[in-house]
Simulated scan of single mutants.
Amino acid sequence: MKYFEDFAVGEKRESPRRHLITEEEIMEFGNRWDYQPFHVDPEAAKASVFGGLVASSTHLFAVSVSLFCHKDLDSAGRSAAISALGFNNIKLKAPVRPGDELKCVSVVIEKRQSNSRPGAGILVMRNEVTNQREELVFIYEHAALYRLREAS
């Protein structure tokens, strides 16, 4: 388990797992959460600006979170996160297509103790999602509340 004290500004962590994006997953997510032709219909997607199916931004966000917060992670891969506080500077950098394998690198850009929550600190991180060709596809910053070790 990684606590607030274990993080350092400038520290980079690579996600311990990868996620393969499939055509079925793109269409399933699109049909449920983001019904656009280029997310749900391969034929219509061919006529779009993307020239084929692409994952939605909300799909990419969900995948990026799961790369660090997944039920299959062992205790060494988990952190003492309490709650997300907010997300900023969300940018789509390149389309994600079926067959792309995603990973995430998280960089600590700010660290401070919480003024309102004793026993907790706030980490701000920049998250960079890349595909198997190391192309940046999605980026965002997030702030989250983490437990201090001595408070646990």
Rank of each mutant, 00 (worst) to 15 (best):
A47D: 14
R149F: 12
N88D: 15
M125V: 08
S66Y: 00
A81I: 15
E110C: 03
N31A: 00
G77L: 06
S66T: 07
H19I: 05
D72W: 09
P98L: 07
N31W: 05
H19S: 10
V105Y: 07
F7Q: 06
F7N: 08
V63E: 10
V96A: 06
G52D: 07
L123Q: 06
G86C: 09
L123R: 04
T22A: 05
R78W: 05
G10I: 08
R112M: 05
K12R: 15
E135I: 10
S79W: 02
E128D: 15
A143T: 06
H70I: 03
L148W: 00
A8D: 14
S15A: 09
R126F: 04
C69M: 13
H59S: 02
E23V: 12
Q113M: 10
A84M: 00
E5F: 09
T58N: 15
E11D: 14
V124G: 00
P98W: 00
C69L: 14
A84K: 00
R133Y: 03
A80V: 02
I122Y: 08
E14W: 01
L20H: 03
E141K: 09
E25S: 02
H39E: 10
R78Y: 05
T58Q: 15
R147P: 01
W33G: 01
V124R: 12
E28S: 06
A143N: 00
G121N: 09
A94D: 14
L60C: 13
Q113Y: 13
P98M: 10
I139E: 15
V108F: 01
G51V: 06
V96F: 07
K91E: 15
S48Q: 08
H39C: 08
Q113S: 13
R32M: 14
A47Y: 09
L67K: 10
F61Q: 08
R126T: 11
K91V: 13
D34F: 04
N127F: 00
H142R: 13
S116C: 02
H59E: 03
G86T: 07
V63M: 12
L148N: 08
R112W: 09
E43G: 05
K2F: 12
S15M: 04
F68Q: 10
L148M: 13
V105M: 08
D6C: 05
S66F: 02
L73P: 06
R97M: 11
F50A: 11
P37Y: 11
A76W: 13
S64F: 03
K71M: 13
V63C: 08
K2P: 04
L67Q: 11
H142Y: 14
V65D: 07
F61P: 02
W33N: 09
G121M: 02
S15F: 04
T130F: 08
N31S: 11
A143L: 04
A84S: 15
S56H: 06
L92I: 08
N88M: 01
A55N: 10
A94S: 14
S79Y: 03
D41V: 01
K71F: 04
D34H: 07
N89K: 15
G119L: 02
L85F: 05
F50W: 11
E110Q: 11
G86P: 08
L123K: 03
S57F: 00
E25C: 01
